[in-house]
């Protein structure tokens, strides 16, 4: 379990130039070991997808290094990157991204054409996956006729067909109902636990926190490990909104107590008349 499947060091990615430049990922370092299920959470626009795109060899970082299976990814050309993605990485997307023209089975087998073993050897495994993911009755169906949960299970099977060592999933439950989302989460958990495949999961779904080996919080392009941290939900004394004390950046003290704010506006109001708001905040 301690062998690293993915190692990223000091990743930086900036979009735009000059005054409109946005540093989407800012000096992120990360190691994912084999069989580990790592969850990346963070607010919208925090750089989660950018980070996953870089880790998945889809996007080149401006600086830093990414090593997958002892191969320095940032030094590879486009052709080698495509080959690496085909053989060692599986992707699961929020909107499934199945190929509409192909049947369930053909979609699952599609990446097998890009791997060394070819389709013939992958067919048996595809049957296993169809069975495991309860897709056998729909093997000849077109994606348009599938439910959201079925589509995502097909996408998972497609991601697994080449037996990759890394799977990146971007909001895999985002378009699913509660039960289907739960199923997908457990499938991903099983993949990491039973197949030794590392899973890097970007999600807002809190259910995954219970099965994740590690939860990373990405905000303003920087990562923080949260698995062992307790959430510290407190109320903004001005507006009453719930704020995570752990990640909040706006504070003030009054009467020996520390207050946390959701926004600069609330902080400003508090500073003007703290006695109006200075009541004890309740941890959740």
């Amino acid at each position: 379990m301690s062998e690293p499947a993915l190692k990223a060091e000091h990743l930086v990615k900036t979009f735009g130039d000059g005054q409109v430049a946005v540093r989407a990922v800012d000096d992120v370092s990360l190691v994912v070991v084999r069989g580990e299920l790592v969850v990346i959470m963070g607010p919208s626009g925090s750089g989660k997808t950018t980070l996953v795109s870089m880790l998945g060899a889809l996007l080149r970082p401006d600086s830093g290094s990414i090593t997958i299976d002892d191969v320095e990814v940032t030094e590879l050309d486009g052709t080698s990157l495509a080959a690496l993605r085909a053989r060692k990485i599986g992707f699961i997307f929020q909107s499934f991204n199945l190929l509409d023209a192909l049947t369930v089975e053909e979609n699952i087998l599609f990446p097998a054409h890009l791997a060394r073993g070819g389709v013939r050897s992958a067919k048996t495994y595809a049957q296993d996956l169809l069975q495991q993911l309860n897709l056998q009755p729909r093997r000849s169906a077109r994606p348009a006729t599938l439910s959201g949960g079925e589509k995502q299970r097909v996408a998972i099977a497609r991601a697994l067909i080449n037996r990759p060592q890394l799977i990146f999933a971007d909001e895999p439950t985002g378009n699913l109902d509660s039960q289907s989302g739960q199923d997908v989460m457990m499938i991903l958990y099983d993949i990491a636990r039973d197949q030794g495949c590392s899973v890097v999961l970007v999600t807002h779904d809190p259910r995954v926190l219970d099965v994740a080996d590690r939860v990373l919080w990405l905000e303003d392009g920087a990562l923080r490990d949260r698995k062992n941290e307790q959430h510290s939900w407190v109320k903004d004394p001005v507006c009453g909104m719930r704020v995570d004390e752990w990640t909040a950046s706006l504070f003030s003290e009054h009467g020996g107590d520390r207050y946390v704010f959701c926004s600069q506006r609330c902080l400003d109001r508090f500073v003007v008349e703290p006695t109006c708001y200075a009541v004890s905040t309740q941890s959740e």
Partner: peptide, 15 residues
């Protein structure tokens, strides 16, 4: 176009 992007993400080469 979107399907080609998916294919490329899955590892299909430009050639």
């Amino acid at each position: 176009e979107h399907e080609f992007a998916v294919m490329k993400a899955l590892g299909v080469q430009n050639k």
